[in-house]
Amino acid sequence: MSQTEQSQTERGKTPGRLARAWDSDIAWSFRHSPVAIVAGAVSVLIILAAIFAPLIAPHDPFNPATLNLMDGFTPPMEPNAFTGNVYWLGTDNQGRDVFSTILYGARISLFVGFAAVILAMVLGIAAGLVAGYRGGWVDGLLMRFADVQLTFPSILLALLIFGIARGFIPPAYREEMAIWVLIVAIGLSDWVQYARVVRGATMVEKNKEYVQAAKVIGAHPAKIVLRHILPNVLGPVLVIATIGLALAIIAEATLSFLGVGVPPTQPSLGTLIRIGQGFLFSGEWWILLFPSITLLALALSVNLLGDWLRDALNPRLR
């Protein structure tokens, strides 16, 4: 060739993956947002505590052998009147350590939340990609269906799905299937927002020239959608998924609070709150208060993280 353009981006050797990640705009924005740092720290703390609950928890609240009814209703940081045992956050009516139940409860809440979000995400992304790329009647059908679903409050929808599912499951399996039913119920009630966002982004991306370039060489539509378009529409999905995680945790708590969620033998944060509210007026406030604070801290910090992520990914706000 007659001439070569020195590529100006070449400055010594390329830094490693980790260094580049640290230097990226998103990491920089995180380091400079106190809200994001605090929210991130709280989220990570609760998630880690939940994952390692069996190692951290001083008691196993679900092993009847280790429970002593005499320990019931112990206030926080005070020795029990009969046994002299001290519990950081007190115990409930059955003598279960509240701190340990919170750790195990958060575990279930988070599991349900993550699983429901993943389900909703997979369904929503698939529907959004198909509707956005194909357009026409496929788009019309999927989106009208989504519109109809949106007219129902999602908690009502989850209740409905939960009720129908229980009707099909033999009573013997109901308790162990409850958690899966819950995941499906929340996941199915949440897919619409993913579908809408992905559809919109897909309609923008499919007209871009890089997609046309792939069409010119006759690339298969499935390949165009999955390899070209999908990676470019995931940004906004990540934002909704983060905020969706907070919403799913709350939805799970709401359903469990209403008594249609996970059974009391495997209590989630919502179940704990339902149990605790029965004791609020008899003076045992801690049974309600500490699970509630945990739920609030978890949902709020995940939500704040989602808000920050949305702003950080939006170039117009920078």
Binding site: E209, Y210, Q212, A213, V216, P231, N232
Partner: peptide
Amino acid sequence: AMRNLRRRFQMIFQDPFASLNPR
């Protein structure tokens, strides 16, 4: 036949910021 034809023509687009997949 068309696949063989396709190989023999190509296109260069207007906007180099949109014609390359950013990912």
